[in-house]
Design a protein around this nucleic acid. Sequence first.
DNA 1: AATGAACTAGAACAAATGTTCAAAAAAAAA
DNA 2: TTTTTTTTTGAACATTTGTTCTAGTTCATT
Lengths: 211, 211
Amino acid sequence: MSERNEQTRQAILKAAAEEFRRRGYQRAGMRDIAATLDMAVGNLYYYFKNKQAIITDLQQQTVQRLISRAETIIELPIRADTRLFLLILQHVHCINFDNPGSFAHMEIEELEASRRDQLVKDRRKYESFYHRLIGEGIGQALFRPTDVKLAALAILGAINYTSRWYKDEGRLDPRSIGHVFAEYLAQGLMQNGLKLEKPHTDTIDQVLLQS
Amino acid sequence: MSERNEQTRQAILKAAAEEFRRRGYQRAGMRDIAATLDMAVGNLYYYFKNKQAIITDLQQQTVQRLISRAETIIELPIRADTRLFLLILQHVHCINFDNPGSFAHMEIEELEASRRDQLVKDRRKYESFYHRLIGEGIGQALFRPTDVKLAALAILGAINYTSRWYKDEGRLDPRSIGHVFAEYLAQGLMQNGLKLEKPHTDTIDQVLLQS
DNA sequence: AATGAACTAGAACAAATGTTCAAAAAAAAA
DNA sequence: TTTTTTTTTGAACATTTGTTCTAGTTCATT
């Protein structure tokens, strides 16, 4: 793999993500993606086996970044609610800034079994960080008792939905949105009377800069 | 329009919703929908102008029900947080029980302009109930100050995402899920130290039975 | 039973889709 | 420059898609 090769590959991924975000995975055709790059259709197949390989690579890249950051966050020597805040903020930032559009298409049911299984596995792994953190918070009586899995699904739903309405030209940037979401969704789990402890600004910076 | 006609029409809508939920709007073909009903493809076009008309009708039906219930809820002589609880619970119930699958497909960008505009208008109207209720709660110092529109988007995201993972055979029914979500998402807005006041069971029943 | 309307069937069509392939062009190596 | 490898092209193919159309069947009404 040459340097040039890898660059083109990334360019294709970027264009595809953009197209998937604009028109959805189904509607975005290989010809559209090629056209964005002033490239012939067939050339895409020199870099990717097929269309599924593109969306899979895209989502894999994103979920790996999410997991990598989550692993860092969960080990930080700070309160569970503060870590949950970071986890949420980072996720919003990732899918709207670092890897925009890669999570626009969520229906993975019809991917080839092997690709789908790997993705599902990684997503589960990422979700488990939420489960662990929420469970930990409940155990420490920081959070009130609640259904851990449902809470995680609520949080992830709110976050992932952002990629449906977020626009670069909009009123708020991903970081601001992430901040509001993190505060709302983490505070909502807190025991009555307890107040969420937000992370320091430099801790946030540190997390968002990772990989 | 005869009785028979209307029945078949509804049967088609139901089958289509099921198919859309299972495979997504794009992937669900007219032939699939017809096959579910043991019906010829062409016959679908006797009842609906085209595929877009089906999804539009489906979503219109759902959003009308959501609006209708929201109008009732917002006028109830109870606290704003309690009404927000009802609004959320009812929404979860509606898209997973009353009109399952109708919100599975959310990308309305490529509908004919007239259909899309009407849908967008109705969705905005429905969203505005959240804006009003959250704004009211902030005004009464029940909720802490926050970005009203972002909070509404977070709530709607969490709710609409349920139709991606909810299964009839699952651990929890739509009402239980709605209950947990409503409690979490309404409590999360509450002023520090204030506790959400849940509605009475019969109030909930009354709302869920409507239309 | 006869008539007209309501409904259904399924082949056919045009457009769009993902994908393949052989040839050409560009780049790198000799 | 010549040769070899890498990259690009764009036409062609097989499917699948939404949709149309005509002919047939079923149904209600008289």
